[in-house]
Simulated assay, not measured.
Amino acid sequence: PTPPKLVFFFLSLLGCNGHYFIWQCTVDADVRLARRIRRDTVERGRDVNSVLEQYAKFVKPAFDDFVLPSKKYADVIIPRGGDNHVAIDLIVQHIRTKLGQHDLCKIYPNVYVIQSTFQIRGMHTLIRDRDISKHDFVFYSDRLIRLVVEHGLGHLPFTEKQVVTPTATVYTGVDFCKKLCGVSIVRSGESMENALRACCKGIKIGKILIHREGDDGKQLIYEKLPTDISERHVLLLDPVLATGKLVTRSIPHTYSSATSLQPSLSYFFYLFSYILIPILIPQAPEGIHCVCKRYPSLKIVTSEIDVALNEEFRVIPGMGEFGDRYFGTDD
């Protein structure tokens, strides 16, 4: 069973930094005044004149000075207060959606986990099994990779497009983003190339190889990237994000190959207007923290987030060395 989760509701959030959802309920001024008169005369034994005097001298000026201007900070404004059942149902649904997300997705809005189904969980179970055959491991990994790539492509920018159907009817849809390229981190990232090619006809794919231990400071071993990569949206391909160091090393090298300027994070994301990292499984929380803190504009798409890293910096429960298992070199 799913453990219960706490949801906190605050009357106000003054000087609070964090992730929260703000809504404001509004009712007409005469309704507010009528409620106050009824409450103070019936429940508190005050006379109407004293209630009106307090309202005119303190309550309404305070509302105009502090409550009314705070509307511009509200994510949602609910007219008619508690009687607006449709708006309240929308808020309840929003809270339920947030509660269903992984905790890291609440911290980093640029992390996307595709919706889990029994099919996806079943494929995860199979490729994590150490006794699965190489043929089945590749088959189910390719299925998952295709789902992750398709989901990742859905986060790319698009333009509206109209076409005429065979029934001579105008259909308004969207046009695929044209200027794309993939960059696979050798060698595990190469396992994702076929899925990207199957989704994006004729896409250019570059390669980059970085030594994990730094190779005496020369971390970049090999790179072959599209010459016009600075004009394209980049999809950085890597099936497993463990510590995140390999990805954070790959991005500056990809950047430096397209411009001779000194690395500048703001210019980097101006140059590469969109960088997306489709990752199969598993992601470790440590790796997500590492990448998102250093490059908060990157979008990371994955099919599942694992628990943690062990003392050997391996993802737990994990799936072993993905590249070795996929290419059959784990013997």
Rank of each mutant, 00 (worst) to 15 (best):
D136G: 02
K134T: 05
S273T: 06
R36D: 00
K293D: 06
S116D: 07
Y108T: 04
R80T: 06
M192A: 05
N49W: 14
S250F: 03
D64G: 02
Y326N: 02
L261P: 02
K245H: 05
V92K: 15
T125W: 08
A74I: 12
H289V: 06
A62S: 15
Q93C: 08
R38F: 08
I78C: 04
H124Q: 10
P61F: 10
L196R: 02
I279E: 02
V27A: 11
L220I: 04
E213F: 11
I22D: 05
N49P: 03
S266I: 15
D331I: 14
F139D: 06
K293Y: 06
K106H: 07
E312R: 15
V148W: 08
A34N: 12
L99P: 04
C177V: 09
R146Q: 10
I127Q: 02
P282Y: 03
I281C: 08
I37E: 00
K299G: 03
R143D: 01
K201Y: 04
S12V: 12
P296N: 05
Y295H: 02
I275R: 06
G287S: 11
K5I: 07
L90A: 09
H233L: 09
I120A: 09
I279T: 14
V234S: 00
V31G: 02
K71A: 07
L52R: 13
E53K: 15
C200N: 01
T227H: 12
P4I: 13
I185E: 00
R32F: 09
L156G: 00
T159E: 10
G189N: 01
G82P: 01
P69H: 06
T302G: 02
G100D: 06
T2G: 06
Y108F: 13
D30L: 14
G15E: 08
G82K: 01
R325G: 00
D83R: 15
Y270E: 07
L209C: 12
K60F: 05
G154M: 04
F10E: 08
R212L: 08
T2H: 11
V67I: 15
H94K: 14
R143P: 00
E43A: 11
L147T: 03
Y55H: 10
I132D: 01
Y140C: 04
S256K: 15
Q262W: 09
Y267S: 12
L246H: 10
P278S: 03
H155D: 02
R143K: 14
V240Q: 07
N84S: 03
